[in-house]
Design a protein around this nucleic acid. Structure first.
Lengths: 228, 228
DNA sequence: GGCGCTAATATGTCTGCACATAATGACCGC
DNA sequence: GCGGTCATTATGTGCAGACATATTAGCGCC
C-alpha cells in the first residue's frame, strides 16, 4: 500500500520508469493524485517537489507537472576538510607548513580575490600527508583584512580548519581541473614532473570581500567519487 | 520584516554567520522560533529542513537542532548531456563514431558492469567536437541485455542522448580523476602523449542490471565548475 | 489573422492542529 | 554504582482548508 510522501515519490518514480508517464508528458495534477492515493494535496506536493528538485520532473504553475525530457542529473559532492577525508580512508592525517610569506599577490590572484593592486595577502604552502606520504599540496592566499585577530600559527592548526571554525563565509565557487605537475609540485609530492594531477580550486567570500583562494593539487591516482 | 519560509531561512543563516548561534550550539526549538517570527511551526520546519539539507544545521529528534561544527560543504554538479554542455558555451556540437564492436569486455569492465565472464557487450568510441575541434573522447560499454530493441545507428544518434530518452535508470555513480593521455587518446584528441586529461567515469544501473559504463576524457584545459 | 485583456487553473505557500517516532534523561530496583 | 525501563520532548509527517501567484488559454476587438 502506498502511503506517506516517500511512498508517493517512489510510486511516481516507478510510473516514470515503466513509462506509464514517458518523458515530456504531463502527469495528473496534485489534486488528482491526492484523490487517487487518498492523501492530502500537501503530501503529494512534498513528493513532487522533491522529484522536481532532483531533476526528474519539471513543474510550472498553471502549466502543470511534466516528466523531464533530458533529466539533468544532479550529483552532490561533499567537500569535507582534508583531515576528515584522509581519516575516512582509515589513514592518519598530518601536514607540514612549507612556506609562509606575506606580500602583494600576483595579478591573477589579486583579481580573483578582488584585491587592489597594492593590497597585501598572506601566502601559505602546506603539504598534507596520509599515513606519512604526500597526499595533497595546498597553496593558499588569505585576505588578512577579513580575518579575525589574532591569527594562529598555521604550522600547528591547518588553515582550512581554523577558517571553518573562525570565519563564516557566504558564497564561493569550486572548480576541478587536471593539470600537469610543475617542478615545484613534482618535488613536493614526490612525483615526476608533468604527472597528471587532480586540482581543486576554491574561492570563498563573505558578503563583501574575498576570504581565501586555495588550490589543492592531489597526488596522482586521486579519485573524486559520488553516487548519483 | 521576516516572513515566509525563505525569509526565515535567511534570518537563521544570518544569525549563524554573525555568530549569534556559533558552530556546535543548539538553536531554539521550532516552536520557539515559530512564536518569535509569528508563523506556524510548519513554516519554521520547512526553513530548518532546507538548511539541514544544505549541511548548515544538524537535526535530531529530541536532541534538537544545532549549528554544524564542520559544515560539510555540499556542491551540486549538474551533469548535462555533452551536447548541452557544448551549446551552453555557444559552440557547435558534433560527434564522430570512431569504433563500434561487440564482444566480451575485459575483466575489469565486466566486473564493474556485473556481467558474467562470457557475457557480450557493445563497445563504442565516440569523439565529441566543439566548433569542429576535439572536445571529449568517449569510450563506452553497453549491456545489450537491458537495451530496448531495435538499437539505433550510434553514428547518427549519440549513445548518450538515445539512452536518456529510451532507458530509464535508477542509480549510478560518477568519479572524476586526472590521467595522463595514452597513445590512443593523444592521437584522437590531438594532444601530446602524457598530457593531463580530466576524466569522468560513470556507471549507470537499472534496478537489477548495469546499463552502461562510460569514460569521458576531456581535452586539456577543461574545467568542471560550480558555485557552492 | 493578429493583438491584448481577462478569467481560469495548477502550483506555491501558509495556518493550526494532530499524531508518530526517535532519542534522551530521569527514575527505580538491584 | 550499574543497568534497564519509561516518561518526556523535539523533530517528522500528515490533514484540511485557505489564499497567493504565475501562466495559459480563450475571448473579444481591430
Amino acid at each position: 500500500m502506498i502511503s506517506g510522501w516517500e511512498g508517493i515519490r517512489e510510486e511516481v518514480l516507478r510510473r516514470i520508469r515503466v513509462r506509464d508517464w514517458p518523458p515530456g508528458e504531463t502527469i495528473p495534477t496534485e489534486e488528482e493524485l491526492a484523490a487517487e492515493f487518498g492523501v492530502a494535496r500537501a503530501t503529494v506536493n512534498r513528493a513532487l517537489r522533491e522529484l522536481a528538485g532532483a531533476g526528474v520532473l519539471e513543474r510550472r504553475r498553471k502549466a502543470g507537472t511534466r516528466v523531464a525530457l533530458l533529466p539533468v542529473r544532479k550529483a552532490t559532492l561533499d567537500i569535507p576538510v582534508i583531515r576528515q577525508e584522509v581519516e575516512a580512508r582509515g589513514q592518519v592525517h598530518g601536514f607540514t607548513l612549507l612556506t609562509r610569506t606575506e606580500g602583494a599577490p600576483p595579478v591573477p590572484v589579486a583579481s580573483r580575490l578582488g584585491l587592489g593592486p597594492s593590497a597585501r595577502a598572506i601566502y601559505l604552502e602546506t603539504l598534507h600527508l596520509a599515513d606519512g606520504r604526500p597526499f595533497v599540496f595546498e597553496t593558499r592566499w588569505l585576505n588578512p583584512a577579513v580575518l579575525p585577530k589574532p591569527l594562529p600559527d598555521f604550522g600547528v592548526v591547518s588553515a582550512n580548519e581554523w577558517l571553518v571554525a573562525h570565519v563564516s563565509y557566504e558564497t564561493g565557487d569550486i572548480a576541478f581541473t587536471a593539470e600537469a605537475a610543475d617542478a615545484r609540485e613534482a618535488a613536493v609530492l614526490g612525483v615526476a614532473e608533468g604527472a597528471a594531477l587532480f586540482v581543486t580550486e576554491r574561492t570563498t567570500w563573505t558578503a563583501e570581500a574575498a576570504i581565501t583562494l586555495v588550490r589543492l593539487a592531489h597526488v596522482p591516482g586521486y579519485r573524486l567519487q559520488t553516487m548519483i
